[in-house]
Amino acid sequence: MGFWIAIILIYILFIIGLTFLAFWLPKRKGRRKLGIFLGILTFLITTFPVTSFLIEDYWFFKSDVTQTLAKHDFHLEDDFEILEHEIIGLRDYYEQFTIEISEKDKQQLIRKIVNAENFEDKTIDQPLDDIYELPRYSNDETEEYTWNSRTTTEYRFHYYKPRPQGLTPVDEYIRIPIDGLTLKYELIYD
């Protein structure tokens, strides 16, 4: 714990020092406005990598939802509302969002899942990757797996893509609860 506090303090001191130098050097030569501009610019550039993780939820829009769902050929015809969006982690990356959809879109998405060639009507709530043995690593870029299923509580689309050694596989879920008008998307690199 103390190690990370020291790293954070060193980073903060680095930002303060660099910002001060960017301001002070031009000011010393009589160019105060340039110093202010360079100081602010340096501060923004050095703090952006850290602050981008804190504010990325604010940069998530309906177009991002539409694009994400379209990757798997899921399309919403009616307007929807983003209820929640969350991103966690760097190495073990987890992203999820929940949207409120119309009854018409819900029925259309359920039909797409139920009419899929690989649809399974499950009576137990068990992750499908626990049922099937899936390769964790693969150098074949075209290798991917999809399942469509219904459990006791939801309709589910599951996409799995193994990746080369050293990279984590991609797990994506689109879940539509039997009760309610929501859609939940999860992306997991783990």
Results as ranks from 00 to 15, higher is better:
41 L>C: 11
42 T>A: 13
44 L>R: 01
47 T>G: 07
47 T>H: 05
48 F>D: 01
48 F>G: 01
53 F>R: 12
53 F>C: 07
54 L>W: 11
55 I>T: 11
56 E>F: 00
56 E>V: 00
58 Y>D: 14
59 W>L: 14
59 W>G: 02
60 F>V: 08
60 F>T: 09
60 F>H: 07
61 F>C: 00
66 T>V: 12
67 Q>S: 13
69 L>S: 03
69 L>I: 07
70 A>M: 10
71 K>I: 13
71 K>S: 06
71 K>Q: 03
71 K>M: 09
72 H>A: 03
73 D>L: 13
74 F>K: 08
75 H>P: 00
80 F>T: 11
81 E>N: 11
81 E>D: 14
81 E>Y: 02
83 L>P: 09
83 L>F: 12
83 L>I: 15
84 E>R: 15
85 H>L: 08
85 H>M: 04
86 E>C: 08
88 I>Y: 13
89 G>F: 02
94 Y>A: 14
94 Y>I: 12
94 Y>L: 15
97 F>W: 09
100 E>C: 09
101 I>H: 05
101 I>Y: 13
101 I>Q: 10
101 I>S: 02
102 S>Y: 13
103 E>N: 14
104 K>C: 01
106 K>F: 06
109 L>N: 01
111 R>S: 15
112 K>G: 02
112 K>H: 09
113 I>W: 00
115 N>R: 11
116 A>R: 05
117 E>F: 03
117 E>W: 01
118 N>K: 10
118 N>V: 10
120 E>R: 12
122 K>V: 01
122 K>C: 05
122 K>R: 15
124 I>A: 10
124 I>C: 05
124 I>F: 05
124 I>P: 05
126 Q>C: 07
130 D>N: 13
131 I>F: 04
131 I>Y: 08
131 I>K: 08
132 Y>G: 01
136 R>A: 10
137 Y>F: 15
137 Y>E: 13
138 S>M: 05
138 S>P: 00
139 N>T: 14
141 E>V: 13
141 E>Y: 03
143 E>W: 03
145 Y>G: 02
147 W>A: 00
148 N>W: 01
153 T>C: 09
154 E>Q: 15
155 Y>E: 12
